[in-house]
Amino acid sequence: MIKFSQVTCHLGEQEFNYELQLPLGQVVAVMGASGSGKSTLLNILAGFIQPTSTTGSIYIGDQRVDQLEPAHRPVTSLFQEHNLFAHMTVFENLALGIRTSLKLTPQEAVQVEAALDQVGLKGMGSRLPKQLSGGQRQRVALGRALVRRKPLLLLDEPFSALDPSLRQEMAALVRAISKQHNLSVLLVTHEPRDALELAETVVFISDGKVHWQGPSVDFISQKDSQIRAYLGQSC
């Protein structure tokens, strides 16, 4: 269970209040209009933004995480871009996930190679990010998430810079990997299709609060006016 209770945060003029319980071992899509607080939810969970309230708490499984440093939380984040260091090879970018000093043992190097294989980049370890396509770069980032072996994957619109076909391919990869490694995934997305294809559960955020939560199959057919407005359907 991922549990947010009474988590409040102020950013500039905006106020966010999260009250949320999500099952582990699923792909959950976080949806909502721009600026509604989707990314903020993920940023708070990863520890990039500190909540302003002192009474709230965040649990991932049995572990309370809101007091932990980002590096000690059981999560890996994937952003839309800037996931890789441009001057490091693909191999080194992955190796950072194991040791930031880049000094790997032979076994760890084998792990990196295996992860490269899994994300479909076998033999590309010596390339630089600029020699890869946008889709391949996101695969590298996904590979790093694998070697980090954290149970929760936070994806912040990771496919929105990709072409539709690539997007589908990546979605399939994420699904396969999360099932195989029993990962929980929190996916911020604008695409209702992503939610339908990938996610079991949808969380709809509006105005800094969780407005609706339920199975993704129900999301599209919701009668709620805000959700319909978001999806571009008139009532």
Binding site: G47, E69, P70, H72, V75, S77
Partner: peptide
């Protein structure tokens, strides 16, 4: 994003200097 990633990976000050 780069800073966020580095804090998630837990880089030390020295590593921040050389890697970023």
């Amino acid at each position: 994003e780069t800073w966020r990633m580095s804090s998630q990976l837990g880089m030390t000050s020295k590593e921040l200097w050389w890697h970023i």
